[in-house]
Design a protein around this nucleic acid. Structure first.
Lengths: 118, 118
DNA sequence: GTTGACCTTAGACTATGGTCCAAGGTTTAT
DNA sequence: ATAAACCTTGGACCATAGTCTAAGGTCAAC
């Protein structure tokens, strides 16, 4: 698959895909003419990057996982371990948000008890 | 209070405080010599900015709230309304994280059912 | 054989939230 | 009167995650 097709299938721009490749998050072969050639699995990889970003991970934080996936495929044990660790990271973020919410609510109740309906 | 004291009390750098001031998030008077003079309440304002940032708000997203606080003080009804709206924003973020977590878990279970212990 | 759609690279540019530095003014203590 | 410890401004610089542009190569159709 050429980069334009991958971009169309994932909704991610060609430029962003090239950026991910430079960062080592996704790999491609090359045609003889120099064009990138992505395997079908690239769609899943891009979607995984989008998912990870939506929960607040930075590209840098995805590099170990994505390199491992590039080497061993999605189903390997190492990758599973890394993903389980990511789940724990997400749980931490959720806990931090909860805590922030509680502190904001406390502040709200402290400064204006009457208006705090939430 | 001079900027250095405020920085020490809040753990936020002088430069960051000056940035917040330029962005309209916090106000200060000036001494005759040009030095900034912050009221005691500035500590609470900086802590509020830190809290808001910790739950993912950008400085730009705090501008309406902080301007309102600067004008009417922390306890006004308008400020309370804005803060309640921020609580809802946090709830949205938590929901998005939950959803992302669920999707990551689904992916994990799909690609390697054996290793998914979380 | 030229047009249009695609691809390549490098580099400039954006916004966010800062940090760091230079050059200079002020205050306090000795 | 001079040093240390503050303060001021402006501007350069950093990382992050891209977008956009320029200059050029490729390919398929007509």
């Amino acid at each position: 698959m050429r980069i334009g097709q991958l971009a169309d299938k994932t909704g991610v721009s060609r430029d962003a895909i090239r950026l991910y490749e430079r960062r080592g998050l996704i790999a491609s072969d090359r045609h003889l003419n120099g064009y990138r050639d992505f395997p079908d699995g690239a769609v899943a990889i891009i979607n995984m990057i989008k998912l990870a970003q939506s929960v607040g991970f930075r590209l840098r934080e995805l590099e170990p996982e994505m390199r491992q996936i590039a080497q061993e495929g999605l189903g390997s044990e190492k990758v599973a371990d890394l993903l389980v660790a990511k789940l724990a990271d997400i749980d931490d973020r959720i806990a931090a948000l909860r805590d922030g919410r509680a502190r904001l609510l406390a502040m709200l109740e402290h400064v204006c008890p009457i208006h705090a309906q939430a």
